[in-house]
Computed example of a mutant assay.
Amino acid sequence: MDILSETIAAIRTGSPASGLFIRHAPWGRRYPKVPGAGFHVVLQGSCWVRPPDGKPIALGAGDVLFMPRGEVHDIMDALDTPVTELAIPGEPRELPGPGVRAVLVCGAYGLGGRRSHPLLDELPEFIHLPARPGRHPALRSAVDLLACEIAEPRPGTDAAIPALLDTLLLFMLRAWFDEQRSPTGWAGVFGDPVVTDALRAIHAEPQRAWTVAELSAVAGVSRATLARRFLGTVGEPPLSYLTRWRMLTAARLLRETDAALASIARKVGYQSEFAFAKAFKREYGLAPGHYRRADEQPEVLAV
């Protein structure tokens, strides 16, 4: 059971989007906040990103910027350039101008906004992954492949791009976790075999009526040790996380399958459809049937 892959699959909704964005200085554009995650990759030239709060971020060729919660931001060729564009769907890929050319790949991921996951909750609003020789070669390869498919579509591109975007998301998260010298929170989860053993058990069998004692036995430690290390990394007690994972799994099944509610209830540990529906509505604010019918496809960043 791959914890990171399963977690991303559980919170992803809809289809990712991406595109090539080319501007010639001077240029400045605003990206509104969206209910998902976004990214920018600079392929040529340089630019600045100005968050609503905090220091501006300088991006050079090869740099990646990841925004886990799709925070509003401005991006421009120079800090003194006024913002004149709003990122919206359907705008031109390239606009002419007298100055230096900048080429970026920009994209967005839909994420289930009604119930989050601590892995994403604890990430900063803006994650800058600078291009450094020898660092994160897998991320660089994914960026190169994505850029080629977007710049020169060929037969199969429509299938290749979503797969590459899913891979890129995982590689951006991996790169961030690898950059943490003193990992805490979820960055520390993947280096703690006790916690990962317990998480794998929960992810593999969410329908099981786990107890802390049973999870401790799986992890090979005492209940007190598991509780302390689990809370210190995951951010909540084991059984609270079990409930969270059950609800995320149920939401994914509702979005992606036509399974009956009674069947989904059993798969996530509820003996009756009524008990499941009550628990689901408490977490998501919607009954399972209403959630399934609701349009969960979020806005995406214009690219």
Rank of each mutant, 00 (worst) to 15 (best):
R200L: 14
D144P: 00
D178G: 04
P193S: 12
P193M: 05
L145Y: 02
D166Q: 03
H203M: 14
I202P: 00
P162C: 10
I161G: 02
H203C: 09
F190S: 02
A142D: 11
W186E: 09
E205S: 14
T157D: 14
A209E: 14
I202F: 03
S141D: 14
P153N: 02
L146K: 03
P183V: 10
V194W: 01
V143W: 02
D166A: 10
R208E: 11
S182L: 14
P155F: 02
I150A: 03
G191Y: 02
A159E: 15
F171M: 13
P183H: 07
R140P: 00
L199N: 09
D166E: 06
T167K: 05
W176M: 15
A198Y: 04
D166R: 04
L146Y: 09
A159F: 10
R154I: 09
A201S: 13
T157G: 13
F177I: 11
F177G: 08
A151S: 15
H203P: 01
L146F: 07
D144H: 07
E205K: 10
R200G: 15
M172G: 08
S182D: 15
E149N: 04
D178F: 05
T184D: 11
T167R: 09
I161R: 03
F177N: 10
F177H: 10
T167P: 00
L169H: 08
A160E: 11
F177V: 10
L165H: 01
L146R: 05
G185M: 09
L139N: 08
A187F: 04
A201V: 05
F190G: 01
V189L: 11
T184E: 13
I161S: 05
A175I: 12
A147K: 06
